[in-house]
Design a protein around this nucleic acid. Sequence first.
DNA 1: AATGAATGAGGATTCATTCAT
DNA 2: GATGAATGAATCCTCATTCAT
Lengths: 202, 202, 202, 202
Amino acid sequence: MVSNGERNKRKVLPPDERREMILDAALDVFSKGGFQDADVDEIAQLAQVGKGTVYRYYPSKRELYLAVVERVFDHLEARLEVVQGQSQSPSQVLRAGVAEHVRFFTENPRCWRVLVIGRLENRFHPCHDTMLAHHTLLESLTTLIRKGIASGDFREVDSEFAAFALMAMAATVVEKHFHQDRDTLQEDINSALDIYLRGIGK
Amino acid sequence: MVSNGERNKRKVLPPDERREMILDAALDVFSKGGFQDADVDEIAQLAQVGKGTVYRYYPSKRELYLAVVERVFDHLEARLEVVQGQSQSPSQVLRAGVAEHVRFFTENPRCWRVLVIGRLENRFHPCHDTMLAHHTLLESLTTLIRKGIASGDFREVDSEFAAFALMAMAATVVEKHFHQDRDTLQEDINSALDIYLRGIGK
Amino acid sequence: MVSNGERNKRKVLPPDERREMILDAALDVFSKGGFQDADVDEIAQLAQVGKGTVYRYYPSKRELYLAVVERVFDHLEARLEVVQGQSQSPSQVLRAGVAEHVRFFTENPRCWRVLVIGRLENRFHPCHDTMLAHHTLLESLTTLIRKGIASGDFREVDSEFAAFALMAMAATVVEKHFHQDRDTLQEDINSALDIYLRGIGK
Amino acid sequence: MVSNGERNKRKVLPPDERREMILDAALDVFSKGGFQDADVDEIAQLAQVGKGTVYRYYPSKRELYLAVVERVFDHLEARLEVVQGQSQSPSQVLRAGVAEHVRFFTENPRCWRVLVIGRLENRFHPCHDTMLAHHTLLESLTTLIRKGIASGDFREVDSEFAAFALMAMAATVVEKHFHQDRDTLQEDINSALDIYLRGIGK
DNA sequence: AATGAATGAGGATTCATTCAT
DNA sequence: GATGAATGAATCCTCATTCAT
């Protein structure tokens, strides 16, 4: 006989599941109005957890916030790793990576908002994990573009800047997707990549 | 010899100058952490003005905020109007416009931050003046690109998307400028435009 | 040629008239929500006078308030003096006095409110002029009733208490007048006096 | 031996007791100077409770205020119900009721003040519970007087007005009690009822 | 371990009073 | 004398954090 009745006040959940619920609720709330606007009470309620419990899992609102951001990066990286596995031409890798990147964020708007707001709210110190994750992403892009230049696929652009620019193109597609009614996602991904690859191509 | 000692409690300034000081202080404070984070007290102190004075000029923190954003757009538009005056090829206009846009924001980092944070904090209603200004900017870009297509300067890209993408490229340059130590502004502007124009060019 | 144009910003008024306007405006505002609720700004505007001017005539909001109350008592006393002049039987004097009292306050609701609120807000110290005025009123009533007892018109009631009770009856009529729609003032005055005079009569 | 030292920061009280302490403190503070004058901080301190706690129990200063007023009426009604139970002549019921009414308020000066100030501050909307309670009181008085007229105990007075007048007499006694040094309460109650009953009697 | 009531520092806003013009 | 802009103390309310159960 399982104690799993609907009426149980105190659900018995494994800590990991509980932690997950908290993180998820936090993502929801932080993504609405950023760090300041978020109310720990609201997070606790959404997570169906006492407020004190939130503080048992994370020592402060700030730590919880950083954990949320970190998890978003983890998810993103997991999605991007799949792409990197396949060995293809630099252009193809770029195409696949951007498409995946854009799809991840358009499918998970809360993840997008939480990252973008976070960056602008200056919430994380530049040396924080979350910022490092961002840097890592940029660096692998830079490397990829360098490879493309070396292989003769791309012309001699400033690889570091080109990496930045690619992120910006991707971001554009995502933002555009959120700010309009029609669904032009696939076309926009193509438009973005066409402009960009033509722009850095030979 | 006027009794203009530094220690005067009650300064005597023309209202416009005072309003300017408040707006300036507000830009400073809002640009640090967005709307929520900003402390009216801090704004008042920075403006060397009593807290009540802030409220004499603006009925609420929110109104003050919107006034700040509006002023930023006004300044930006003033800078861009100069460019629009000159009749040139679409490419040249784009080049000049982007360069001016980027320079304005890199020279006025607080203006940049206040706009970007504001958009993400969802602080302004889409039908608000500030949002309209943004739309106007996008629309004139779209128009310009359409002209370029018509004149055969650009290929048949999705003009609306291309406008978005250009804003993103410009944003990239600005953000990159703020996030690094070396000054590569001019190179980056060129890189961005090279990639972009080549990308949409024939 | 008189400088009495409608367009004159700075009206040239004799100080007494100005003082009168301020007192009148103050009566208006204080009678709405008592002392605390009143806004000096509102008084100044109503009096068509700068805020600083209010402070030239009265050193503080509190003093202004007391002046208002004092003036109300002065008006009331002026009205009651007329009655006292006529020599008649104690009953007749009481009748006439109560009627006049009630009429004064029903005709001047703001005067009523300002006094009643004031008393309850504990705004004046018991030894203040305004309180003394109240006492004086009570005392002359007490004396009058004593005379009535001496002359055999009234029975041997506690004259001091009877004075209190008469004030209460009068107050009742006034309050009832303000709290209902129909105009039953004259009937109520009669009802009150009938009950009261029968109550203290032989 | 429990660690129940006086200096404990976080007291452990049953919520009802705490709510009671807050209401009591609020009665204290509101009765001093009415709604506007009252300082939530002061209420919290008096209740030996954090400011936030006050807001946990009552969502705003205003709600707290209304709760206080409501409780006063509840207490009063409880006291008056005892009287109504006994079946007696209208005069006797009136006597007993007034005496109880007066005693309740003279024993609880804060209750008196809070009601009276409240009414004058126009704090409650006429359709609010608190006002309804007042009306109910008046109506039962009116009914009682009508009965007395029907039974031939009283003469044909305006029953509605007579109810008003009785309230006023009672109020007089209470006010007089608070404004003098000697304790003449019982005599005054008698005086009031003598005058009144004789006034409306046959 | 989980809870949520209690806390109080913090922040937006008001308004009596002052003072330079 | 008259003015009203400037001031900042005062006050309501919020919410991150703690802690007794």
